[in-house]
Every structure is written in structure tokens, then in C-alpha cells.
Write a protein that binds this DNA or RNA. Structure first.
Length: 299
DNA sequence: TAATAACCTCGCAA
DNA sequence: ATTGCGAGGTTAT
């Protein structure tokens, strides 16, 4: 049942920069410079040599492994031309220089929605831990060679589990939000996939109906799973870049800043956001605990 | 309309 | 050991 492919890629792609930059939460390093993750009900193990990706999957996805891989890593994005377009900005340009192989992913919308509902007042390691726990407890078992992981549970499984069970699984005050989201999706009142085909603002309005989802989380979901590359999520880190580098007032409204970014970076403000975000996160290493979130020095 | 506390949990620092 | 604080936010007051 397990399948294996070699894929020759012509697009820039750095697995570490892409999978560790805080947009996806279920990737783990495996032996031999490989990466293991769970993508739409399959375990994938990836490695890269030169321009060849080796991919092993626990089963062949519908539509084929190569197509799934292309889709997940957005190899349809012409990264060099996007980088050229947004690299006119010096800070984005610096980010691109440090992480030239960082790509935005095209992830499963439901899983991405849950992940970012969980991100509220949290941090990356904890989001990853909780996502894994949800899969372990509520998903279906999968196996590839010696690797055992579980699929991420669908909305039906979260509804069946119920709020209290989700609280027991460390979701905290986000548990009722997740149940609401699951009900919207399972009932068909919100069709996540269809949000790919409507405008940014219509998609935003729809996502904001879900309790626990406001601008920031909606932007993350739209950027990482719903084809809206103009989404510009503003978290604490991006906020600081906006004030320290771009001269915005600390309390400039979310919408004002995001609109500014959309007009500055054309359709690709989401990519610009990711290069800035990950550059900051990498350089500001002692992020938690050390207390000194020392100010970014402009330029 | 704008500010502020409360919300689960975890990990670090004093 | 125990306590306080803040972490990729949002909601209610």
C-alpha cells in the first residue's frame, strides 16, 4: 500500500524553512535528514537531494502523490517572481535572503482552522502538542514503515468528542470555539473549500462568524489553506515590525495596517508577511521566558 | 468607540 | 517549592 516517488522540482523549496516556519504543526524531523508529517490522511516522509524530492506515502492520495505534493507545497507559485515583486521592500528582501526556499503551504482548511483557533494566546510548541494529542485521541491510526501517526480528526469527530473531552485534551477555553467551528462545517453552513473561490473580504466575513475567529486567525486560515495570498495576519511580531520598521503607531488599527500591506505588496502580502515573520522569529531567539523581548532595531 | 479583564495551560524565572 | 508572568487572540463588559 505504501508508495514512493522521486519528484524533480524546478521551484525553490527548502523543507526546513517551509515546514518549521510556524505555518504547519504536524511535521517532525526523522532519521537521515528526513521529514515526517501527516497530510490529508496519509503519512508522508520527505527528503531532498539537489532538485529531487523523495517522497514516501502510506497510501496513494486521490489524484496521485505527485499532484498532492505539488499542491501542498504550492509549486504552482512562481516563487522567484513573487520574491522579485515583494523584495523591493528592504525588510522583506532581507528575509528572502535568509530563507530563499521558504514557501507558503496549501494545507487542509479544516485542520488549519483548528490549528489557528488553538493558537490564541498560545505558542508554536504547544499548538503542535495539542494538535498531535487531538490526532492521537480522536483520529484514525496510520502506519508507514515503523512510523505510527494518526490522521487529524474531522469536524464530526470533534463534535462526537464534545467540549469537555476537548478540554481534557488541553484545548482550554478554545474548546467551545472548536465545537462551534465543527458544527458550522459539519452542518454545511460554512463550506470552507468554497471560500477559495470568493473574494478575500467575503471569505473573511464568513470565517468571522465562527466564535473565536477574528481578523488574525481568519487571515492565517485564508493564507495557509484558502488561496488568499493577500491575507496579512498581524500578530505580536508583525505588529512590532510595523511599529519599529514601518513607522506605524502602536495602536494603528489592524485593518489599516493590513490594507497598507495589501496595497504595498500587491497580491502577495501574505508571502511578504511570512518572510518578515520568520526572519524576526529566527533572530529574536529567546522568545519566551527570557523576558527581554528587546526591541527590533530599525534597519 | 476605546480600553481592560478573563479565559485554559504550560514552561520558565525568581 | 511556590508564585507570577506571558505566549502567533478573542470576547464580554
Amino acid at each position: 500500500m505504501t508508495t514512493k516517488q522521486s519528484i524533480n522540482i524546478s521551484q525553490p523549496l527548502d523543507l526546513e524553512q517551509t515546514l518549521e516556519s510556524g505555518q504547519a504543526f504536524r511535521w517532525r524531523r526523522a532519521d537521515g535528514n528526513k521529514w515526517a508529517g501527516v497530510i490529508d490522511g496519509n503519512i508522508w516522509v520527505l527528503s531532498k537531494k539537489e532538485n529531487v524530492i523523495e517522497i514516501e506515502s502510506s497510501a496513494d492520495p486521490v489524484g496521485g502523490l505527485v499532484n498532492s505534493f505539488h499542491s501542498y507545497f504550492r509549486l504552482d507559485d512562481d516563487l522567484l517572481s513573487i520574491q522579485k515583486e515583494i523584495g523591493t521592500d528592504e525588510f522583506v528582501s532581507a528575509g528572502i535572503t535568509k530563507n530563499p526556499g521558504l514557501r507558503i503551504l496549501r494545507q487542509n482548511p479544516w485542520e488549519t482552522l483548528v490549528a489557528f483557533i488553538l493558537s490564541s494566546t498560545s505558542n508554536v510548541p504547544r499548538i503542535a502538542r495539542t494538535m498531535e494529542l487531538l490526532a492521537t485521541e480522536l483520529g484514525n491510526p496510520l502506519e508507514l514503515n515503523e512510523i505510527k501517526r494518526n490522521s487529524f480528526p474531522g469536524p464530526d469527530a470533534l463534535i462526537r468528542a464534545g467540549e469537555q473531552h476537548l478540554r481534557n485534551l488541553k484545548c482550554g477555553f478554545r474548546a467551545p470555539y472548536m465545537i462551534s467551528a465543527a458544527n458550522y462545517v459539519e452542518s454545511g453552513i460554512i463550506d470552507l473549500e468554497s471560500l477559495c473561490d470568493v473574494s478575500y473580504s467575503e471569505s473573511l466575513d464568513t470565517l468571522k462568524k465562527i466564535p473565536g475567529v477574528a481578523e488574525k486567525i481568519a487571515d492565517c486560515v485564508m493564507l495557509f489553506s484558502l488561496e488568499h495570498l493577500e491575507a496579512f495576519p498581524i500578530d505580536r511580531w508583525i505588529r512590532r515590525a510595523l511599529t519599529n520598521w514601518y513607522g506605524f503607531d502602536e495602536k494603528a488599527s489592524y485593518q489599516l495596517c493590513a490594507e497598507w500591506a495589501r496595497s504595498k505588496f500587491h497580491g502577495f502580502s501574505g508571502y511578504a508577511n511570512q518572510y518578515i515573520y520568520w526572519d524576526i522569529r529566527q533572530s529574536e531567539r529567546p522568545m519566551i521566558g527570557s523576558g527581554s523581548t528587546k526591541a527590533l532595531t530599525p534597519k
